[in-house]
């Protein structure tokens, strides 16, 4: 009996939900906004699918219908990746301890 590879991926998925559950509960509430912006940035790893789609065009016709959607998805995901990580970094820079004030 072969196990369908889907089952393995599904196991990873379920385990990752559990990891996510415990990791996110340990996030301090004061960082919930950066949490949202960083999850946004990392979910844009969907760009890997977009790149595959965009590169699949044949050499005579780079812009066939499926690769056009790939290119569009690249732009959207790239906005998120750069925007998401940079805005998170910008926020986190503000959470610095200021000992000198006392």
């Amino acid at each position: 009996m072969e196990i369908d590879p889907f089952i393995f991926r599904f196991s990873i998925f379920i385990l990752a939900i559990f990891v996510g559950y415990y990791v996110v509960w340990s996030v301090t509430p004061s960082l919930h906004t950066p949490l949202m912006s960083v999850t946004n940035a990392i979910s844009s790893v969907i760009i890997v699918g977009a790149i595959i789609a965009a590169l699949a065009g044949s050499s005579e016709n780079i812009f066939e219908i499926s690769s056009i959607f790939g290119f569009l998805a690249i732009v959207l995901a790239a906005v998120n990746i750069f925007g998401g990580f940079l805005v998170t970094q910008r926020m986190l820079q503000m959470y610095k301890k200021k000992k000198k004030n006392k």
């Binding site: 991926r9 998925f13 990752a16 996510g20 979910s43």
Partner: peptide, 14 residues
């Protein structure tokens, strides 16, 4: 794609 599956699960539960 494992990276996407893991990320999706993380973001979904978050």
């Amino acid at each position: 794609n494992t990276a996407l599956i893991i990320t999706g699960a993380l973001v979904g539960s978050s």
